[in-house]
Each structure stands twice: as structure tokens, then as C-alpha cells.
Design a protein around this nucleic acid. Structure first.
Lengths: 233, 233
DNA sequence: CAGTGGTCTAGACCACTGG
DNA sequence: CAGTGGTCTAGACCACTGG
């Protein structure tokens, strides 16, 4: 059974997608929606509030609720593997497997991966080299449920990303980019000093059925940049 | 008069910022909060829901609500101004204009902006504050051709991004994200030590007719992260 | 089982906007 | 002024989790 506020949201999004509501148009008031969908005003309001939070609608007190101006910028960013990136630059690529093991999820790991606390997870730690210099330390936690044979793979031949995309095709990803100082052993693995800033990406990848893996990708700041291009037209 | 759910949110955020609640800790349940603050469960719930939406807390049905690994996070895929981002988090926003002047483009500036060497460019340097702490140093070079009145604007009222988007609507943007150590004067402006890693974004924005401006956005690593979500379906 | 979060109701009073 | 959104209450029933 679908919650009612979801049904209302869907109806409104549908109206927008089919052009029955254009940017700038006023949408029905909370009271009108409540009446039309036979729900309490609080429920109609919730539907509107969430659409406002998602940037799809905009509200002004005393005036009304309107369809917001244009478009979530959908991304042109891709999850290109580091290996492809390096090879595309015409550079030499190498990979070293540091750790490959079954672990018991810590509370925070289990929350990230969406598994029960203390359940088994697969963990790998790899270093990726560009022209013999480390450019990425990849620490990855994998939900064994979606990739039971994960630990048996030869990651020097096929990156974890590539393998996981085979067994559980990627449908979504979240990521958080931050600037950090490396832990001592991370610095050592990346052949940098502990006072060198690193660009760190925390990425969570989803297949159709759930969270497949969580990765922490740490890059020496002086050897790696992240580029992007956005087109709003 | 401050809404009650805001008071509850503030109290929880305060507990987190003062270390009375650490990442992973369970926070009071909706019922406990309702009792402690003498509000209805719906109001306590609203406070928690908003903190969850902001990524500060995480909830699991039947289990409880927990402190998430929390630093503010912004979207990589939208060019939402830092101001909107901060306000959207319900935080206090302030801005200080450090520099505002006409300059002669250096060779590298002129290359970035796509103007002739030694032509005049407009330069502004602003510091954006979230809850009185600097979160972004915005150094921006503007092509006077597309925004002749740029320097006359009151940037504490309207961010450069917003103004430029009015006079020369944004159609494209390039950006490069990197982790760097700040220059001494940058560190001072951001109120951090020169050994604190910074997340730096170099962004070039285009309107239909050419490059409008180039900006270097420098953020203290411990106060800013960049988030994104990709959907491949 | 008791406790948690998730949804929902039918009211209330308020602040704000426009005519 | 009537209508809008903003906040809030005191209940209800549900699904889910852990012990």
C-alpha cells in the first residue's frame, strides 16, 4: 500500500512532466489538494513540502505554491574507473592488492552498507598506480549478498567497480567529496607525507535491489583532480 | 518567536557540536523528545525528520535515530549558490566583501577568461560565513563585457552568481575540484591553520555568448563537503 | 512483547498577501 | 477581507526491530 502523500506527489510530478503544469504555474492550494484527494490538510501539505524540498515546487506564504523554474540538472558525470582514466591519458596503469578479506561490519560500516550490525562484509584495499606513482587508495566494503564471489576475483585484471557492475549492474550512486589529511598508513601507501592534503571520495553504489558497495577513494591532492562539465541547455 | 521544532533541532545540533552526541550515538526517541520539550510527538518528529533530511541524523524503523557522520554537504551537480545552500540547511548566512576592483588581467587570468592579455577585468573577493564561521573564500574574475555594472552591486544582498545569472544567464560550467593547502592569507581569511586541507573548486561559467566569469572557491576541509547523486536508470 | 519510527486525521491559531 | 501557507496538538493505527 502506497502512502497517500506519495500518491499526491506522483500526481503532481506527472502533471509537470506531461506539461499540464508549466514552470511558474500555481498549483492547487493545500486545502484544494486535501479535498481532491480526500486527505487531511497535513497530508496534502506533506506532499507539497517534499516537492519544495526537492526543488520542484516553490512556496510563498500568503500567496501560493508554484512550479519551480526548470529542471534538476541531471549529470553528465560518469563513474569512469580510475583504470580507464589512466589508460585514456596514455599512461601506464598498475594495481596492487593490499587487503582482501571477510570482516564483521562495524556499526558505522553496517549503517553505510545498509546491512545488519555485525553481519559479514567483504573488504578490499587496493592501490592504483599511474606511471608507477600511487594515485588512488581504494578501500571498499561489499555486501556479500549481491556479490558472493567477490573475494575470489583477480583485481589486477579487473577492477572491483568493473566486476561489481557485471554481477549487480549499477543504477545509482551517491558520493561525497572532501579534502582531508591522510592517516599515517594511508600516507605511506600513497607515498606522500601525512601533511599532504588528499581528495577523498566516499561513494556508495546501488543496483536495482539495494546497496552493493561503499568505497572510500583517497587521492594525493597533488596528483589528482576531479573535473566536470555541466550543460544547462 | 522561534518555532518549537527549530528549538529542538538547535538543541540537538548543539549537543552534536559540543560532543555530547557523537556520530553513531542514539538520540532520544520521538516520544522522549516530545516529553522533554513538552511538544506533541509530531513536532518532535518534525525536528528529527529535518535533521535526517539534512544528513545530520539517520533513522531506522523499529530501532531508533542516530547521529550520522556529519559535515554539511552540498550538491556537485547544481550550481546552487553557497548562500542558498546555507539557508537551506536552516543556518545563518553572512557575507563579507574583501576586495572589489578593476584589474588588468595577468596572462593566466586572461587565458582562463578568454580575453586579450592585459585587458581590464573585474575582480571580487568575498568570504561567505555559515553560522559565523567562514566556509568559502570566493575569488572571482569577471569579463566586463557581459556584466558592465558588476562592481556596483551590493554583494551582501545578492551573490555574484545570482547577479551574473540575471545579466548573462548561465548555460554551461566547467569545474575542477582539488585538495590543496591554503596560502597564508587564505588560511587567515578562512580562520584555519595553513596546514588544514582545503577543498578548492575552480569554476568557469559560460553564457550563450562566451565565458562570463572564472571563480576559485576555497573551502576549509573540515567545514565543507561536496555531495552528489547519480542516477543511471 | 515493548519500543521504535511511519503515516494520518480533524481540528486550531497564526502570519502573511492581495484585492 | 478571504485565502494562502506555517506551526502545532492529541490522538490513532501501522510496520518493523530486538529481546
Amino acid at each position: 500500500m502506497q502512502p497517500r502523500f506519495i500518491a499526491i506527489k506522483s500526481a503532481l510530478v506527472d502533471d509537470i512532466e506531461h506539461g499540464r503544469l508549466a514552470p511558474g504555474d500555481q498549483v492547487e492550494s493545500e486545502n484544494q489538494l486535501a479535498q481532491r484527494f480526500e486527505v487531511s490538510r497535513m497530508t496534502a501539505r506533506r506532499a507539497l513540502s517534499e516537492l519544495v524540498a526537492e526543488g520542484i515546487l516553490a512556496r510563498t506564504q500568503g500567496v501560493g505554491t508554484f512550479v519551480a523554474d526548470s529542471r534538476p540538472m541531471s549529470s553528465m558525470l560518469t563513474i569512469k574507473g580510475i583504470k580507464d582514466e589512466i589508460l585514456a591519458r596514455g599512461h601506464d596503469y598498475q594495481c596492487r592488492v593490499v587487503t582482501r578479506e571477510k570482516r564483521v561490519a562495524t556499526p558505522s560500516e553496517s549503517r553505510w552498507l545498509g546491512v545488519k550490525e555485525a553481519s559479514p562484509v567483504y573488504f578490499t584495499s587496493l592501490i592504483h598506480y599511474e606511471n608507477a606513482l600511487p594515485v588512488q587508495l581504494e578501500n571498499r566494503w561489499v555486501n556479500p549478498h549481491w556479490a558472493p564471489d567477490y573475494l575470489k576475483q583477480d583485481f589486477t585484471a579487473m577492477t572491483p567497480n568493473y566486476y561489481l557492475n557485471q554481477v549487480a549492474p549499477l543504477t545509482e550512486a551517491d558520493h561525497v567529496v572532501s579534502a582531508v589529511l591522510p592517516e599515517n598508513d594511508t600516507a605511506e601507501k600513497l607515498m606522500i607525507t601525512p601533511s599532504s592534503p588528499c581528495l577523498q571520495i566516499n561513494r556508495r553504489t546501488y543496483s536495482a535491489r539495494g546497496i552493493v558497495s561503499v568505497a572510500t577513494l583517497t587521492h594525493p591532492g597533488e596528483r589528482y583532480r576531479l573535473g566536470g562539465h555541466l550543460d544547462f541547455t
